[in-house]
Nucleic acid binder design. Structure first.
Lengths: 131, 131
DNA sequence: GTCCCTGCAAATCCTTTGCACTCCT
DNA sequence: AGGAGTGCAAAGGATTTGCAGGGAC
């Protein structure tokens, strides 16, 4: 097992993600962090994001719009994705009653994780369209 | 609006996907169809898969393993993905009770579609590991 | 004949990786 | 010093696209 060393870049990436309420892509995060560390490289951003995902400190969201998104909230929750603007919103839902039960058909273990995405047009986009 | 013309390639792609019970990637489907049409190109497979998705005749699954998968079943259902082998299984669950209700927070419309993925290790892989 | 569809290859987008160098411990 | 982390640029994988020729109607 590798020993983890401190890096100001990693701290900055984590801090930056936690400060946001949207779910930025690696590239969007890169752009934001460049304001503080103009020399940081995109490769470093990707490397650290993947590391943080492995550590369970952040979550990766693959919503199907090409680029992965990242989320500092790791407790189970769901997402609403606007088909118009691509914005990813957090959704909270009651615990998923019979899902673990259903999953016994496929695995003897627990479900490790899940990804739930709902697609539609968000209110914000509907307003813009109405104008 | 474009007029749709018949193409034997498109028919073959659709037929091939419908005949399968797994959820192949574009590349896997390409390999299968090549047996019947050795000259078909990967670009054509992608073009037609996207067209069929637009027509609502098939479904695209973005499970987060790099490549998109395709599914001939378009009725709402869920997926179990083995973290070990990447196999995608169909799952059926009762109708999602309060989900549309919850979604009113984000959209005034109905939810257009949703993607639900559960991750774990499938029984098949557990057996192999045990050997 | 017209316009859609194809095969091919090049281009694009997102992400990962190899390498020499730097920074933590 | 030792090894993890970085910046850079090149490589990689998946998907899209431009173009000239072929096929449907």
């Amino acid at each position: 097992m590798k020993t983890l060393k401190y890096s100001r870049q990693r701290e900055s990436i984590k801090a930056c993600l936690m400060a946001r309420h949207d779910h930025p892509t690696a590239d969007a995060l890169y752009a934001a962090i460049r304001q503080e560390y103009p020399n940081i490289s995109l490769g470093t951003v990707y490397r650290n994001l993947n590391l943080l995902v492995e550590l369970g400190e952040i979550q990766k969201l693959t919503c199907g719009d090409g680029a992965d998104h990242f989320d500092a909230v790791t407790t189970p929750h769901y997402h609403f994705i606007c088909k118009n603007c691509g914005q990813v919103y957090d959704m909270s839902l009651e615990t998923m009653n019979n899902i673990n039960q259903q999953a016994q058909k496929y695995t003897d273990n627990q479900i490790d994780s899940h990804m739930i995405y709902f697609y539609g047009t968000c209110k914000h986009c509907m307003q813009k369209k109405a104008q």
